[in-house]
């Protein structure tokens, strides 16, 4: 009996700690939402009045809209490039020998491990030579480099649960390698590829440090503009934009989860 009681107390502790951690993770994100509906002209919490004026400011400002457009285009292009490239890279690594695989894995993960500011400085100096600073192309290339590891890692873990004999079987049955890959392998790691694409999109959309250095002018990303506005004028427009970004991110996350669930139900 005593042991059961002890276990209950342990369970309670675990729950309390778990909930506390969840709060610390989510609260800072959620706090901007009420702030965005504030009527005051500076960031305050809790808000003392309610209004949509900061949303209005955001959606009517040509600068903010242009930055949003730049960010969305960059994110879409990054996703469109990083997803197939990263998936093929994961496939190639999966097929190669363990030695090549483990070496390549370290190289591939590098952009996640190295401080982004270092990458940003490096990219900036390189782009200065190539004339890519303040161009959309430059942003997309840098973001693709950052997003690739996420795609590679998710697709590789998806491939690990896949019986590769299936692709060999398809090829022995008359399918060329590309056809076997497309009709047999891809459908079975689709969920990993979608997750990788989602992560690539979010990586690009949320990226600040590289964007601070290499984006600008008419090709400034929304994160860069937010950062500057935080420094210069600190008004709740940023809270309104953040709330929009949260809605987009969470919406996509739920979408990916739903797709995954319906796919699992299929099995």
């Amino acid at each position: 009996m005593e042991q059961v009681g002890q276990r209950k107390i342990d369970g309670l502790w675990l729950m309390v700690v778990g909930i506390a951690v969840l709060f610390f993770l989510i609260l800072p994100t959620l706090i901007v939402i009420p702030m965005s509906f504030s009527g005051a002209s500076f960031l305050e919490f809790p808000p003392t009045s309610f209004s949509f004026r900061w949303y209005e400011t955001y959606f009517t400002s040509p600068e903010w809209m242009s930055a949003t457009k730049t960010s969305l285009i960059a994110a879409v292009l990054t996703t469109a490039i990083a997803t197939p490239l990263g998936s093929l890279c994961a496939y190639g690594l999966h097929c190669s020998t363990p030695r090549i695989r483990s070496t390549a894995q370290i190289l591939v993960i590098m952009p996640i491990v190295v401080p982004v500011i270092l990458i940003a400085v490096g990219v900036f100096s390189l782009y200065a030579k190539l004339g890519l600073n303040y161009t959309l192309t430059g942003i997309v290339i840098a973001h693709t480099a950052l997003a690739l590891p996420f795609v590679i890692v998710t697709v590789m873990s998806g491939l690990q649960n896949y019986d590769f004999d299936q692709e060999l079987a398809a090829r022995s049955l008359g399918a060329s390698r590309a056809y076997a890959l497309w009709t047999v392998t891809v459908p079975q790691v689709k969920f990993s590829i979608q997750t990788g694409a989602f992560l690539a999109f979010i990586t690009s959309l949320d990226e600040v440090v590289i964007s601070m250095l290499v984006s600008g002018g008419e090709n400034a990303t929304i994160t860069r503009r937010m950062f500057n506005s935080l420094r210069d004028q600190l008004d709740p427009t940023i809270a309104a934009i953040s709330t929009c970004l949260i809605v987009v991110s969470v919406g996509m996350l739920i979408g990916v989860q739903l797709i995954g669930r319906s796919k699992n139900a299929d099995k």
């Binding site: 004999d165 060999l168 079987a169 090829r171 022995s172 049955l173 060329s176 076997a180």
Partner: peptide
């Protein structure tokens, strides 16, 4: 290449 050999193949894992 494998797909041009015209073989039927059965795998241990069924595949």
């Amino acid at each position: 290449p494998p797909h041009k050999r015209g073989l039927g193949m059965v795998f241990q894992s069924y595949a």
